[in-house]
Design a protein around this nucleic acid. Structure first.
Lengths: 209, 209
DNA sequence: TATTGTGAAGTGGTTCACAGCT
DNA sequence: AGCTGTGAACCACTTCACAATA
């Protein structure tokens, strides 16, 4: 498969969410225009995005909702469930553990870890928080696909190393630090400070341009 | 001022964070190579990014740390404090209210709101949660720069409308929905589901390529 | 020698425009 | 007529390469 632009992936994900909403309403086809609106793109871009992977629509008609949704799930690799481990059982960890978007879409939180002994043993959305030192042994017994880092910046790299060592191939990092990981490990960053700075920039001189 | 690419803004923010760390260590100059490493860029790109706004370095030497940091703060519009209102006092709201990255960099949380009567009156990081119906009157008395939306998807658009109506010019949205806002209002989205889908894509066929 | 500043070249993603089905 | 599929044109960001300077 040829290289796919990250921006394309983001849009495909948005199209898919929209298609799922359409499917719930029993809609049978959608136009590239409707998808464009949902994905913050132009109709031409929607068609380009999709044509990169195949011809899913019918000229003069549009795209069949359930079929296109299935294709997108296939393309995005969402045709299975993912085992997720969450490291960090603080306030952020608690918010993440309860986030419906996880379970809804096949991302199952398998376990929650924390180094803080006072948090170990607590319950978080039906899961008992485990000591971080168990992570390696646990994942050897039952590997995980994705590790979510919800710990302070200072300990994030250490957690990342532990996750990589335990065979995790994808990391979602909420700590405001760049993580160093080996080739072949995917990392996504969610960095509040960056978003705030971008908003500050947008608000510069006067207010709101 | 000419148009600045969003990717450039993100990098400038990363450079600035790195410079602040350098400043703490008393370092006097940095090279474009060091900045590149911190910002996930190449040295040439660092120089291009900076030269877009002026000539801040000295050939053969590098960039003076405190001066460049000051320039970046100026460029990003960080030379003042921002009044932030947080809507949503659930688990996510609690995590956000305690996030140090806010206060540290001039983003001051002025108030927290929630529609849920059972949450109103509770304390969150020293702030008392207020009823959402007060938002309009409160902001008329003391305007806010940035609104942070930490409510469920279903109520996010309503909150956005209320914020815009109350004169907020920039919104940071954690709900997994596209917000419709008038021209001139800046919106930044943090969408967990999108990031997870991107990781799923990275993990497709086999595991981890 | 080391490192910045920058025009020029290169790369990759987006938009256009129209042919091709229904 | 309506809407997709797609090569070609376009545009924007990135990288290159080297002159300029400490």
């Amino acid at each position: 498969m040829k290289h796919v632009a990250p921006s394309t992936i983001r849009r495909l994900s948005l199209y898919l969410h929209f298609l799922e909403a359409c499917a719930l309403e029993g809609q049978e086809t959608v136009s590239s225009r409707a998808l464009a609106e949902a994905g913050g793109a132009t109709p031409a871009q929607v068609r380009k995005d999709l044509s990169f992977f195949g011809s899913f629509g019918r000229r003069g008609v549009g795209y069949p909702v359930p079929e296109l949704a299935a294709h997108l799930r296939e393309i995005l690799g969402l045709g299975r469930t993912f085992r997720v481990v969450l490291v960090g059982a603080g306030r952020l960890g608690a918010a993440l553990a309860h986030f419906e978007g996880f379970g809804d879409r096949g991302f199952r939180i398998a376990a929650v870890y924390d180094t803080d002994a006072s948090k170990v043993g607590a319950r978080l959305d039906g899961l008992v928080v485990r000591g971080a030192e168990r992570l390696g042994a646990d994942l050897q017994a039952a590997p995980a696909d994705i590790g979510v880092i919800g710990v302070p910046a200072a300990s994030a790299q250490g957690v990342a190393d532990a996750l990589v060592g335990a065979g995790v191939k994808a990391i979602l990092n909420f700590a405001p630090v760049r993580l160093l990981v080996p080739e072949g490990i995917s990392v996504k960053h969610v960095n509040l400070a960056l978003e705030l700075d971008a908003l500050a920039f947008a608000l510069r001189d006067g207010s709101g341009r």
